[in-house]
Computed example of a mutant assay.
Amino acid sequence: MGRVAAWPSRSRGSLAGMDLNHYRFRSRWVLPAAPDAVYQVLEDVPGYPLWWREVREVVRTSEMEGLLRFRSLLPYDLRVTARLRRQDPAARLLEAALDGDLVGSLVWRVGAACGGARVDFDQEVRVTSRTMRLLAVPGRPLFRANHALMMRSGRAGLVRLLAGAKPV
C-alpha cells in the first residue's frame, strides 16, 4: 500500500514529525587550486562579496563577528550575524555560529584532492525569518534549490578568483 502523507501542523511547522524550519545543507567543491590558497580565501569573510555574487554585504563588527546579507534567486534578503567559533589554519577548518534570519552553525573544511583542493561545507540552521516560516511548506523545495544555486555560484566565483580572473 502507498504511504499516506500527513498535513503539516500549523502550530509546530512540521510534516510527519519533520521540522520544516530546520535545514541541513552539505556541499562539496573540488577545486583546481592549492588547499592553503582556498583556505585563505574562505577565512577572509569580508572579501566574500568580491567573488560570491549572492553575498551582497559583509560588515565586520568585531574581530570575531560580522553581519552578512545575502540573496540568491528568490527576491528576499537574508541577514545573519556570524560569530567565529573556531579558526584552525593547520587543519584548514572554519566554524561559525549564526544568528538572525538563520540560527545555527556552519563549518568549512578544506583538504587536499587529486590536483587541488576539496572543500566541504556543512550548515545546520533553523529559519527564524517570519516570511520564510510562513512559507515553510510550499517554499521548502524552493529554499533548498535556492541554496543549491547559491553554492554553485560560490564555487564558480571561487574558481575564477583562484585562477586570477576578474571577480564577480
Rank of each mutant, 00 (worst) to 15 (best):
L74V: 14
L74D: 14
L74G: 15
P75I: 05
D77S: 10
D77R: 05
L78Y: 11
L78F: 13
R79L: 02
V80C: 12
V80W: 08
V80Y: 04
T81F: 00
R83S: 10
R83Q: 10
R83Y: 03
R85M: 07
R85L: 13
Q87G: 07
D88K: 00
D88P: 09
D88Y: 08
D88N: 10
P89L: 00
A90L: 06
A90T: 04
A90P: 13
A91R: 06
A91I: 00
R92S: 08
R92D: 11
L93F: 11
L94Q: 04
A96S: 10
A97T: 02
A97L: 00
L98N: 11
L98R: 08
G100W: 03
G100P: 07
D101R: 00
L102P: 11
S105T: 09
L106I: 00
L106C: 11
V107W: 02
V107L: 12
V107N: 08
V107Y: 00
V110N: 05
V110W: 02
V110T: 01
A112E: 15
A113M: 06
A113F: 02
A113H: 15
G116V: 02
R118I: 01
R118F: 02
R118Q: 09
V119R: 01
D120F: 00
D120I: 04
F121K: 00
F121E: 08
F121I: 00
F121H: 07
D122E: 15
D122F: 03
E124M: 03
V125W: 01
R126G: 10
T128Q: 09
R130L: 13
M132A: 09
M132D: 03
M132E: 03
M132F: 04
M132Y: 06
R133N: 09
L134A: 14
A136T: 06
P138L: 09
P138D: 15
G139P: 12
R140A: 11
R140K: 13
P141A: 07
L142G: 12
L142W: 15
F143C: 11
F143R: 08
R144L: 11
R144N: 15
A145S: 14
A145W: 12
N146V: 01
H147Q: 13
A148F: 02
L149D: 14
M151Y: 04
M151R: 01
S153C: 04
S153H: 00
G154A: 05
R155G: 07
R155Q: 13
A156H: 13
A156C: 04
A156E: 15
R160K: 11
L162N: 13
L162C: 14
L162I: 10
G164K: 03
G164I: 03
K166R: 15
K166D: 15
K166F: 13
K166S: 12
K166T: 10
P167S: 02
